[in-house]
């Protein structure tokens, strides 16, 4: 076991595998991170675009006057149905809702799921987990920098301001896209890269193993010859034929062995 650990072949293979792991690992982490960023950026851009498009379809004047208790009003239902249609048109959209910001306090106005789900937000329900991107959405289209986890799930959100007829920003529309699809894509890319690295390491180890085997084999032959001669057995021949440095070593060794044999041999024999 000790011999295997200290052998040149083991050292060669271990060194090259370590080198490949370091290089491949570095490449993997950089590529994976950049790919994750790119995927997220693409999703953010998509969300901003969708939110902006949706915002233009909502009547800001009707929306701005809705308050707690107005759930039965026709104007509420119209906007709710609009949001529901938008949500239904894209399987990736999980939630669509509108919010207002009154003196720094953010609350829901119309939620697409109101009337269809028990946990849907009602007009006036406060939203505590605001972030700079959400607040930015009251002025320009924006999207969260990272996934949001709240009582409604794990999503990436995009926002856009809703204007009244005079062009004033009166509310925002929020679009929440289910994060699992993005995470799935990220994991798929990560797993693919792992697989490629794994296969590369195996192939490299096999190639290095075969290459080092030929070198070690010839070094062992020379070593065996040296051992035999050192024990007084001159009946050895150097059988290493290569054109590289080991071949040159073998030739030098052959010359030394020949001279030694000549000196040690019976004078009558040669």
């Amino acid at each position: 076991m000790k011999k295997i650990i200290y052998s040149l072949q083991t050292k060669l293979i271990a060194s090259f595998i370590l080198l490949i792991v370091v290089i491949a690992g570095g490449t993997f982490f950089y590529t994976f991170n950049e790919t994750k960023k790119a995927l997220k950026e693409t999703m953010r851009d998509e969300l901003k675009t969708v939110a902006s498009a949706v915002a233009t379809q909502i009547n800001g004047d009707s929306l701005s006057i809705l308050k707690m208790g107005d759930e039965s009003k026709n104007s509420f239902r119209i906007i709710r149905d609009q949001l529901l249609t938008i949500r239904s048109s894209n399987p990736d959209i999980k939630f669509v809702y509108t919010m207002r910001n009154e003196n720094g306090k953010v609350s829901f106005i119309v939620d697409a799921d109101f009337g269809n789900k028990d946990d849907a937000a009602k007009p006036g329900d406060p939203y505590e987990k605001t972030n700079p991107r959400l607040l930015e959405g009251f002025y320009k289209s924006s999207a969260d920098d990272d996934f949001t986890i709240d009582q409604w799930g794990s999503v990436l959100s995009g926002y856009a301001p809703i204007k009244d007829i005079r062009g004033n920003n009166v509310a925002l529309v929020g679009i929440d896209m289910e994060s699992s699809r993005v995470i799935e894509k990220q994991n798929f890319i990560g797993n693919t890269i792992y697989l490629i690295i794994g296969i590369s390491i195996l192939i490299a180890a096999a190639i290095i193993g075969i290459f080092s085997l030929t070198i070690i084999r010839d070094i062992k032959k020379l070593n065996q010859n040296a051992t035999e001669i050192s024990k007084g057995n001159t009946n050895v021949t150097v059988e290493v034929n290569r054109k590289d440095e080991i071949g040159e070593l073998a030739e030098s060794f052959s010359r030394m062995v020949a001279s030694l044999k000549f000196m040690m041999m019976d004078q009558d024999k040669i």
């Binding site: 052959s254 010359r255 030394m256 062995v257 020949a258 001279s259 030694l260 000549f262 000196m263 040669i270």
Partner: peptide, 12 residues
């Protein structure tokens, strides 16, 4: 001959 037999070539 030195290339094949080494330093003992001359004696050989």
């Amino acid at each position: 001959t030195i290339e094949y037999i080494g330093p003992a070539a001359e004696r050989f």
